[in-house]
């Protein structure tokens, strides 16, 4: 067992894939924190589905599976979807959740239409396009990891540079406007960052499950601290380890898909945090409640004895 584990750990492909999924987890943990704090966590779900037609159409245009071009296509359709959702919720009576469901399903439908059309006109290069739906981490190449790492460095630098602005905007958008920050610019940068994170995760985790990576780590981290800096760091770490552990588990078996395993690992972190977090966790709460009851009872007994 240990030897087996060691062989996997020293395997070059495993190291590469684990590094890639780890960085994706780290980034989605950090960026996802802002999305969940603003109660827009399902936006990620809609955006990831909306990226699919962009990928398909980019492929139709260049007829090659060039990751960079596909990503640009995904970014464009992701941003169109964001703009559409914001237009619908701001200018009409439609609620956010209806707008999300509508955009999610019609863009995903369009994506499937394009992908099926590509499949029906065979081209040697099209193989693997379907992998964007569920992700295929094992197909990750060295330059993919380099691309992921490059995007990661840019995103993390942005987070550090605009730390104050993002923080202020996340917790009190009105106040940040009175201070003179342009909410439109900050909002655009934040949505752009979310879209980028989703897109670098698409190839390995897939459009359906990447949203779980955005939401899970930040929810888990949120249970352990109330300070933004600590939550962001914890969420990043949770995401990183989920990516690495998920990749490890899926390489132990023959035919275990990586993306779903990573999601299961993230969910384990979330449920463990909800249960065991020291201050607000469910178990800690139960214990405190019981102690209070006990305290109350002894006080009551004291009173009774005092009376008699």
């Amino acid at each position: 067992m240990l030897i087996e584990l060691f062989t996997i750990l020293s395997d070059y492909t495993f190291q590469l894939v684990a590094l890639g999924t780890g960085i994706i987890g780290l980034l989605s943990g950090v960026i996802g924190t802002y999305a969940t704090l603003r109660k827009e966590s399902l936006l990620g779900d809609a955006l990831s589905h909306a990226a699919l037609p962009g990928i398909g159409l980019a492929f139709v245009m260049i007829q090659r599976k060039e990751l960079l071009f596909l990503m640009i296509g995904a970014i464009v359709s992701g941003l169109i979807a964001t703009a559409l959702i914001q237009l619908i919720t701001r200018k009409t009576l439609v609620k956010l959740d209806s707008a999300l469901s509508l955009v999610l399903s019609s863009f995903f439908g369009l994506g499937l239409v394009v992908l099926t059309a590509i499949q029906n006109n065979p081209n040697a290069q099209q193989a693997g396009l379907q992998s964007f739906i569920f992700g295929q981490a094992s197909a990750m190449l060295q330059r993919d990891v380099q691309l992921i790492a490059g995007v990661g460095v840019i995103l993390l630098t942005l987070v550090v540079l605009f730390w104050k602005e993002f923080k202020c905007y996340t917790f009190d958008p009105m106040f940040s406007r009175t201070l003179g920050f342009s909410s439109k610019v900050i909002e655009f940068i934040l949505s752009m960052m979310i879209v980028l994170t989703i897109i670098i995760g698409l190839e390995s985790v897939g459009v359906i499950l990447i949203s779980a990576l955005l939401i899970g780590p930040s929810i888990a981290a949120r249970q352990w601290s109330h300070r933004l800096s600590r939550v962001v760091i914890l969420a990043g770490l949770t995401g990183f380890f989920s990516g690495v552990i998920g990749t490890l588990v899926s390489s132990m078996g023959d035919n275990i898909p990586t993306g779903p395993v990573i999601v299961v690992v993230v969910s384990l972190f979330v449920f463990a945090s909800l249960l065991f977090a020291p201050k607000q966790g469910l178990i800690a709460r139960r214990i405190r409640k019981r102690e209070k009851q006990k305290h109350f009872l002894t006080r009551l007994n004291d009173l009774k004895e005092g009376q008699s």
């Binding site: 969940t36 966590s41 959740d97 899970g216 929810i219 779903p260 999601v263 607000q280």
Partner: peptide
């Protein structure tokens, strides 16, 4: 401990996965 949208976002990907 968790807002509505996040609760949705952590439950269904787990089951689906």
């Amino acid at each position: 401990l968790v807002s509505t949208d996040a609760a949705i976002g952590i439950v269904f990907p787990l089951f689906f996965s």
